[in-house]
């Protein structure tokens, strides 16, 4: 019973992973000096996209957006990939980590 259950779980994971083979449009956001570059990213509406976030700083950063329902930690000098959408046309705000000097990096993803 246990083996059968584990097999079912594994099959479920594999089945769910299969659609990942399709390529989604890719966009890049860089982090330099605690700023998102570009600060405003334009992506197509109604299409799922992947966004690579390249943190070039020596400090960790965060990508957090309630409207996109995403929260990711980005270690120093590293990249992560986010998947968002398909989004209806509109502007989606996100922000970085609160810094000790009180500043917070802000950015916008506009779907159109």
């Amino acid at each position: 019973m246990l083996v059968r259950t584990c097999g079912m779980v594994l099959a479920l994971v594999i089945a769910a992973a299969t659609p990942a083979m399709s390529a989604d449009p890719e966009f890049v956001i860089q982090i330099k000096n605690h700023q998102f570059i570009p600060a405003e990213l334009h992506i197509p509406a109604d299409v799922k996209v992947q966004i690579v976030i390249d943190n070039q700083d020596d400090a960790s950063e965060e990508f957090e957006s309630y409207t996109l329902n995403r929260e990711k930690h980005i270690p120093p000098k590293s990249k992560i990939t986010l998947f968002v959408g398909p989004l209806t046309a509109g502007r989606y705000v996100y922000q970085g980590e609160d810094r000790t000097d009180g500043s917070t990096a802000l950015g916008v993803i506009e779907a159109r």
Partner: peptide, 14 residues
Amino acid sequence: QIGEPGQWPVDIGL
């Protein structure tokens, strides 16, 4: 967490 949120039709964890 298996994969990334939004990567697949359903987000999966174990």
